[in-house]
């Protein structure tokens, strides 16, 4: 069976940032595709390039950033690199919604939330004030805000953190985007609110048949919430698979180490945690071989000489980059 044309194709995308006489390789030859109605999770520790990748898709990389050939981003059949800046901004503003980590900084503190939701609809869809306000009510209800009629005239500081994030989600949905990018949408929220927001995102994504990129530094957040998961390390995707498959058969050593470092409720209480030694590499001076090699317990000479490329695991859609992958099913 042939797969339908993906909504989003990211192909050999690199984002390099000149910093003085050094070049920070924030994203290095990242490729993936995303279908409508599917969620892709991006997981990795801070600095691994998750946000930069999202910004690159939105066309919001810093001005001095270089996007070396042959990197491409194709959205709904359209090569975004071929568009003029203004065309691209219009397209992304309408068709791609974005939810960021900190709802407070995403909202304008001195503007009522109703206006903040209406603004993009007036700007991108040319709605009248009344139309936009009517739609704002609908959106507030859709994101689970009770008493939308009174809330619409609140300022952001009058709402709880979870409520603010719902408003940000409403804004992201305003123009009925085909792709929703949620960059650590619950990292700044309390754990009791987290599941509600993640459920909300999943429901909206299903109802509207949107594609979603769900970014998290927490493997626990994406388990059961994404069709596929890509693990990033030092600007590269080092493993990617359907989420259940990934958790059942981790191959790449970093994925495994990240998984093992999580404190778990089913470990014996007060057990030592399995830490990963060292720290992630300097992106301006990446090692020649596998960028995880300096921290990897399994590394051999080959790992520091030669970078492993993503290879297929033989299972559908499971790829990993590791010279000495974990044995399948070995849960140790």
């Amino acid at each position: 069976m042939r797969e339908p044309l993906p909504l989003l194709v990211v192909d050999k995308l690199s984002v390099h940032l000149p910093c003085g006489d050094r070049i920070v390789r924030a994203i290095d030859e990242v490729s993936f595709t995303l279908q409508r109605g599917q969620t892709l999770a991006l997981v990795g520790e801070s600095g691994s390039g998750k946000s930069m990748l999202c910004r690159a898709i939105m066309g919001l990389v810093p001005g001095r950033a270089l996007l070396p050939a042959p990197g491409r981003i194709v959205f709904a059949g359209q090569d975004l690199g071929a568009l003029k800046a203004s065309e691209r901004a219009g397209l992304c503003g309408r068709r791609i919604g974005m939810v960021l980590q900190d709802p407070l900084s995403a909202l304008n503190p001195v503007m009522k939330i109703g206006r903040q939701i209406a603004e993009p609809m007036r700007h991108h869809l040319g709605m009248s004030r009344d139309q936009a306000r009517e739609r704002s009510f609908e959106l507030l209800r859709a994101v689970g805000i009770a008493q939308a009629e009174t809330r619409i005239d609140c300022y952001p500081h009058q709402l709880s953190g979870g409520m603010r994030q719902r408003v940000v989600i409403a804004i992201a949905l305003a123009c009925e985007p085909q792709l929703l990018i949620a960059d650590e949408p619950t990292t700044a929220l309390d754990v009791t609110v987290q599941a509600d927001i993640l459920d909300l995102l999943a429901r909206l994504q299903q109802e509207r048949n949107m594609a979603m990129i769900l970014v998290s530094h927490n493997l626990g957040v994406v388990a059961g919430r994404a069709h596929e998961t890509a693990v990033m390390y030092a600007g590269r995707i080092v493993e990617q698979a359907p989420t259940d498959e990934l958790f059942a058969r981790m191959r790449m050593r970093y994925t495994r180490a990240l998984f093992d470092a999580i404190p778990r409720l089913d470990d014996p209480a007060q057990a030592m945690l399995t830490a990963i030694g060292g720290q992630s590499p300097d992106l301006a001076a990446l090692p020649d071989g596998c960028s995880f090699a300096p921290r990897c317990a399994r590394a051999e000479a080959r790992c520091s000489d030669q970078a492993p490329t993503l290879v297929s695991d033989g299972h559908a859609r499971h790829r990993y980059a590791c010279w000495f992958p974990c044995a399948v099913g070995a849960n140790t």
């Binding site: 754990v191 009791t192 987290q194 599941a195 927490n218 493997l219 626990g220 957040v221 388990a223 059961g224 919430r225 989420t243 259940d244 958790f247 998984f259 999580i262 778990r264 409720l265």
Partner: peptide, 12 residues
């Protein structure tokens, strides 16, 4: 509410 790294367990 604690998220767990286990696709079979999804926090309610």
């Amino acid at each position: 509410a604690i998220p767990r790294p286990d696709p079979k367990h999804r926090p309610a």
